[in-house]
Amino acid sequence: MQRIINFILNYRNAFLYGLLLIFCLVLTIRSHSYHQSKFFNSSKLLTGSVLSTKSAVSDYFGLKEENQRLAKENERLRLLLFNSKKDTVAINKAPIYEIIHARVVKNMFSSPRNYITINKGVRDSVKQDMGVIAPYGILGIVENTSKNYATVQSILNTKSNINAKIKSTDYFGSLKWDAKDYNVVQLVDIPRSATVTVGDTISTGAMSSIFPEDIPIGVIKKYDLNQNQSSYDIQVDLFNDMANIKNVYIIKNRDRKEILELQKSTGNVE
């Protein structure tokens, strides 16, 4: 016993190193397959407020450019509004989707697992698994929330997996990212029978309870058959400039809970 204790005391630095290293490894590797760590992320009080102070200062430098971008978006939305077909039968029904505006406090796009921090949290009824879009297309899904902040798992994240379709043909697949270029994401599992043309628009599919259908994502840059020749791997050029995002919108689906419950109960029947 004495010798064991002596042994540990002699190598106490190595033991300390090993212990802390195992802690780090568990945190890191667990997050590769599971959600981001719940306690240590930038949505928390100290980190969130320091980052938002920083962005409050640095945002002034891009104010003019950002204003122009928002004005352009307004213009586009007005165009849509004025040209939308009026329904002959008006149904008084509460909208399914609610929109919450937020500002980006921390953006990041150079790592293989990117998270964006925004300045709305539980207090503004932001919850996990809500969709987030930027002016020109989708951005990601809310991952963690604190009182005033939330972190968003960007589509530039190797863990991200979002249902998307080719707009003109309605064939759908999953949107992933291979960590190589922050302007290009990959759409996989599009069946071989689909017609794919370079320049076609990719938008969100109807299979997801997070995003509404037909939110733009990007255009097809090039495509290839995958290794076993059964489906297409498509490179998608994003509409959003992921390196320069300030204003985002969180989408809240009122029916999501109902949909999930229904799907769950259907699953139980089998």
């Binding site: 630095n13 190595a14 190193y17 802390l20 290293l21 802690f23 780090c24 490894l25 945190l27 890191t28 997050s31 981001q36 760590s37 240590f40 992320n41 930038s42 928390k44 980190t47 320091v50 980052l51 921390k106 990041m108 790592s111 697992r113 998270y115 921090t117 972190t151």
Partner: peptide, 20 residues
């Protein structure tokens, strides 16, 4: 630094190894 930049414990691992 990890907490600020959402990198799990990667910087911690690098820092720890450097110190060791």
């Amino acid at each position: 630094i990890d907490m600020f930049s959402d990198t799990m414990a990667l910087h911690a691992m690098a820092g720890l190894t450097l110190a060791f």
